[in-house]
Simulated assay, not measured.
Amino acid sequence: MNKNDHEFIQLRPQRIVKTKAWPMNIPVKVEVVGVSRTMPLSACLCEVETEDGIKGYGFTAITEEDVVASAINNVIAPTVMGRDAITTEAIWEELNWVLTPRGQSGYASHAIAALDIALWDIKAQAMGVPLWRLLGGAREEVPVYTTFGFGFLSQEELVAAAKHWVAQGNRRLKMTVAGEAMRHRHRRDLEAVIREDAARVMAVRDAVGDEVDIYIDANCNLDPVHAFKLAKMLEPVNLGFFEEPVLQNDVRHLSELRRRTTVRIAAGQNEGQAFRFRDLLVEQAVDIIQPNVAITGGFTQCVRIAGMAAAFNTSIANGGAWPFHNMHLHAGLANGGLVEYHHPAVLLCEQIFTGLPVPENGVLALPKSPGLGFSPNMDAVEEFSRNPSACGNGKG
């Protein structure tokens, strides 16, 4: 075959000339069924620019935004200066050794995630394709579930909110349980906590009927004993999954819980190292594994984790919010699953990004434009970064 018989894409190197991160504290005002609550959420935006003028934007959240921004600006930026942004695998591996040389995770995983997302945004723009197509283009839309049920809602308000979201076309709903029950300053009698949680979930089930999927999330706030008790109480509810039921995503306790209940178990959204997902899979600790591109080391690592899940015939889903970044992973891969349309997180994104898609009837259509398909509002980003105290401590 003569090479002149075909057109070849000549993808020139995209040398990095600038990397910058902005830490932000953003006030998010949640208003539903007559209830209004403002909460501060933290986030960090990362911009990478190449010598050709292509700019990619990465993002991370649910962390100490100042620490992550400092890691990007003072450690990652000089490390990647002059590197070819297209070489995402090589850059990810180097950053992994720079930031997590002995298997640590924590803030390093968030910082790598923000940089990696920006690089994939650049790569897709340079190739002229949407990011989800670059990742494999398995589907043009993804199913979403709506996270709506928070502890500040009374049971009556929770039921009204559930009905509201179902009326808007949402057939998959997630609510939080356990609050911050295990944390010292919020510590409560766990028996009372789980009884109250069970009553709240059952009330929502009675209100929306059996045709709506219900998921719950304990955010790693329960010990194994009370996680098991709550799961058994809620077996008749036919939950879609019980997310992060036990402290620290303890693999041994998750595995035991999964064997002792019919409720499906999900976890992984806050893990930073691939071996943690390996352990969850090998120990048969989860029914659904939840890598999050904004937390779990970006697209580079989440694609690997999704491959492991496929080899174990285990479903993947987005947990931990940030649907507009995670939708690309789940649309790109053949084993992609549910994407979390976390209401407060979406409200945050709407304040700093433009061009965000809106789900219709429980489905989110992927953008057709190259890269991520949406853009940061840099005036808003700069304002939130300049005024971090405007909304409290930012650790909501």
Rank of each mutant, 00 (worst) to 15 (best):
S375G: 00
I26Q: 11
V208R: 06
V358A: 03
G34N: 04
A124W: 01
P323Y: 15
L135H: 01
A231F: 13
K55H: 15
T300Q: 11
A124T: 01
I112Q: 05
H184Y: 11
G151K: 02
V263D: 02
A69L: 10
N219K: 07
L131E: 02
A21H: 07
G209V: 07
L173C: 14
L364H: 05
V80N: 04
G394P: 14
E156C: 05
L239A: 02
A118N: 06
V129F: 11
L364G: 02
E94T: 13
E180F: 12
L333E: 00
R139F: 10
M308E: 06
Q273P: 00
F59T: 02
N170K: 07
R185Y: 15
A199Y: 15
G392C: 12
E65D: 12
A345L: 10
N292Q: 11
G209S: 04
R386S: 12
Q168W: 06
A317N: 02
P357N: 07
R102L: 04
N238S: 12
V129L: 14
R276W: 08
A365M: 07
Q273A: 13
A85K: 08
G149V: 07
A294Q: 08
N73C: 08
Q125Y: 07
L247P: 00
T146R: 11
L119P: 05
H164R: 08
N270R: 06
N387F: 13
N249D: 09
H110F: 04
